[in-house]
Design a protein around this nucleic acid. Structure first.
Lengths: 252, 252
DNA sequence: CGGGTCATTGATACGTATCAATGTGCGTGG
DNA sequence: CCACGCACATTGATACGTATCAATGACCCG
């Protein structure tokens, strides 16, 4: 059930079989959300931890003036914050972009049992560090790059993230996102997003068709975006970390 | 020693005296950094956890084209990520803005001992959630607000964060930041930052003098910024969280 | 006193927002 | 089965916010 999450975590560190079983056993319920419905709403109490199983979602904020900023995208294997229950209200909502399935996790058993599973703990920590790094990179791109580079960069990032969970085929992936949503994610107007998308296609850097993005040359797109994947921290756990964990159970 | 950190954490949840002693005992070394020197450098291996004791720092990235984006500011009580040692290399550097003192923490004892201190664990988790929320708010402000509102918003945020650790006096605080740095933090040019700063002063929304910011009317500045402090999650731990922790030791 | 960093100001160029109109595809109801 | 409406995509014209270039001023330090 939590296959994409486990796949992602194991890119960082192999997990013992018993940890994976334990993770899968935490799923208390599956929920499905139709396209363009809220999974959680801004200002409401956090609704517990869940993992995206299938589909695409995004975190977003609505501004006082009615504007919207999309903060990040969520793909299969992405989850909400482990300790969000510490807050009275969330600072952002989560929206299903296409039809989306989520798995809700039993919070008590998660928090209670995580302590005895150091490999999983560490992998989840890595995932949380990666998420913060993605936010920082987004700040950098929105703050310092022009619209053309912003779109190219986001498309590169999404490719790498989807590849990690096996949601790409060749150099192609599904991205059920309107141009308005793309614009809201990158701090630009929808009209301009359209033009830049168009330009990327004319430049043969991407091909967009029916919500499917194809990247003829990943190298070329990365160059246009000045995309350096370092911030995604995809290298796997450092040897020192692995060594220390070997004292525990053996990898699955 | 870790007074500002503890002060901040206790805004969320009172800590037992023994936890505070334990925290203070984790300090393995104090380091001082002169103005405009790197505390950590981008791309290097994480150097362990440290806490700002005095002074002001910022996280930043250098782009391939030489540009710089300041991601966040760090004030007394702010610390680096608990588990950053999981990464091979950092995705950003940390720069001392003025003369800055940091306390390095013993990582092994921190990670080893945190499990037995649920209140401190929870408070540190809250701090980490707040930090992520700050990044998300920055994305929103840079992506969707004009230069005038961006500066006003940042000045409001800094006020609230400094107030939390007792670094404000009246409606006034020290901010050792050049206009170039301000511009790099908000994704604008230094020339424009200057003009907007000037405008804020003409509008009597702020007063800036020798690195000191005064806010005649916080309400007015917040209105100009459309600043809603909700994202800082300053309400303290929800009752449910407190109740659960009462099973453990009593508050200090 | 001289040189450096930082702040300030004006003129101009450019990227992007905004406004407006049209086109396209799709689901729904007559 | 077609017509309508709706969301989304596309395109052009124009306005505006902000970047860039350039020069001067203020301050601090050696």
């Amino acid at each position: 059930m939590l296959t994409p999450l486990i796949k992602k975590l194991e890119h960082f560190l192999p997990l013992p079989d018993q940890d994976k079983e334990w993770l899968n056993g935490l799923v208390s319920r599956l929920d499905e959300f139709p396209e363009h419905t809220d999974i959680t709403r801004q200002e409401e109490k956090p609704s517990g931890v869940f993992v995206i199983i299938a589909g695409h979602a995004c975190r977003y904020k609505i501004l006082p003036d009615g504007g919207r900023q999309i903060l990040d995208f969520m793909f299969p294997g992405d989850m909400t914050e482990l300790h969000s229950l510490l807050l009275h209200a969330t600072d952002h909502g989560i929206l299903a972009l296409g039809p989306t399935t989520i798995a809700r996790l039993d919070h008590d058993r998660l928090v209670g049992g995580i302590v005895d599973r150091p490999r999983t703990s560490v992998a989840l920590w890595w995932s949380s560090l990666q998420q913060q790094a993605i936010l920082r990179e987004r700040i950098t791109v929105i703050g310092r790059r022009d619209a053309h580079a912003r779109i190219a960069h986001l498309l590169c990032e999404i490719f790498e993230r989807l590849r990690l969970v096996g949601e790409t085929a060749d150099h192609r992936y599904l991205l059920p996102v309107t141009q308005i949503e793309l614009a809201d994610a990158l701090g630009m107007s929808d009209v301009h997003a359209n033009r830049m998308l168009r330009r990327l296609q004319q430049e043969k850097l991407i091909d967009a068709d029916h919500r499917t993005i194809s990247i003829p040359s990943l190298a070329a797109l990365k160059a246009a975006a000045a995309f350096d994947p370092g911030y995604l921290h995809l290298d796997g756990a450092p040897q020192a970390v692995r060594d220390r964990l070997l004292a525990g159970s053996s990898p699955g």
